[in-house]
């Protein structure tokens, strides 16, 4: 089957005056992790719930493996798994009982359901806690059980809505491991997140969304490349002559931050850093701090989703950020990141 696991076109959903989805498009490739990245209220959960048939859109079309979520919700439900933003477990039942119950609801026999439950409890390191009430679980354990419940039927497509929000770094790592296992086992994953490092770590492709629309789309590398190459940030002491420093280093000065930014050329960051140090030495200049910066997804994110707040940090070589992010027509999902940013 070469049908894409999920295609969404022109989704619109209003809640009163809020446009939760405002002309949203998405296409997911099979066997990959696709991250939907956006700030609070961007419409991530609304999008995912629409894909999983929980929410009905006002306009637009969603096809999961070729099936329309509106016309064939039952067929869609049997091929996807949803792990919602908030843990959806029975707190009074034991961990194992939760999995067995969901397994039986999926149509497994009693013995098949408990076999599958044991298998998943093993995979997710929950065997020790299997016979305890879920209300006694830690946040990380709950999240893992929640994800396990979404995997009972080995769905072709799994939605994970903010799987690591509220987890400590260790638990987050565990969930990341879990997601990698899931993909290795052949499931396509659509995950939403507000964390850039999470998208960077896990995703093959990232769709940045804000205010119900796609703001940019591409691989993590493509998105980072948007901000140009490495650069060296030199912080000057309080009374130093910033312009002299900038001239000596061949960089641009930022009076407010008392910083000079030197763009690295083709030779990369290390060469630029060495050149900066040599130039400082030759000119006999003193500085407070020298930093080699690689562009992070955070910067991409801030630029793309900047609304009224002016983006911080030195301007990259790329096009300057354009005031309120999505002013023009919504970019299509096939547009390159360059095109998508406008």
């Amino acid at each position: 089957m070469s049908l894409p696991p999920l295609v969404a076109r022109g989704l619109r959903k209003r809640y009163g005056d809020t446009h939760a989805l405002d002309g949203f498009d998405l296409e997911i490739e099979s066997g990959a992790v696709h991250a939907l990245l956006g700030p609070n209220g961007a419409g991530k959960s609304t999008a995912v719930n629409t894909f999983a048939t929980l929410t009905r859109c006002d306009e637009g079309e969603v096809r999961v493996a070729g099936r329309d979520v509106r016309k064939e919700p039952a067929a869609v439900r049997s091929s996807v798994g949803l792990v919602g933003q908030h843990a959806a477990l029975d707190e009074i039942l034991f961990g194992r009982e939760n999995l067995v119950m969901f397994g039986r609801l999926y149509g497994l026999s009693k013995s098949a359901a408990s076999e599958r439950a044991d298998e998943l409890l093993g995979t997710f390191g929950l065997l020790d806690a299997a016979d305890r009430k879920v209300s006694t679980y830690s946040g990380g354990m709950r999240r893992r059980l929640d994800i396990a419940a979404g995997l009972i039927r080995r769905p072709a497509l799994l939605f994970l809505d903010e799987p690591t929000t509220g987890l400590d770094p260790r638990a987050r790592n565990e969930v990341w491991q879990t997601v990698r296992q899931i993909v290795d086992a052949g499931t396509t994953v659509l995950l939403t997140t507000q964390y850039l490092d999470e998208a960077d770590q896990l995703a093959d492709r990232i769709t940045v969304m804000d205010a119900g629309r796609v703001v940019a789309e591409g691989s993590p590398q493509q998105l980072k490349r948007r901000l140009g190459g490495d650069r060296v940030l030199v912080t000057a002491p309080a009374h130093a002559d910033l312009d002299r420093l900038a001239a000596a280093l061949g960089g641009t000065a930022d009076a407010e931050l008392r910083q000079v930014t030197v763009e690295a050329g083709q030779d990369g960051g290390a060469a630029a850093l060495t050149a900066v140090v040599r130039a400082l030495d030759a000119a006999g200049l003193e500085v407070d701090d020298i930093l080699l910066r690689r562009p992070t997804l955070d910067e991409v994110f801030l630029h793309l989703t900047a609304r009224d707040a002016a983006p911080t940090g030195p301007a990259p070589t790329g096009p300057a950020p354009t005031g309120p992010a999505p002013t023009g027509p919504a970019p299509t999902d096939t547009a390159s990141t360059e095109g998508a940013l406008r």
Partner: peptide, 17 residues
């Protein structure tokens, strides 16, 4: 409130169940 209903609704089961 706990979200269990949403999970039930996302399963391929009858709405009456």
């Amino acid at each position: 409130k706990k979200g269990v209903t949403d999970r039930f609704r996302s399963l391929p089961i009858s709405g009456a169940a």
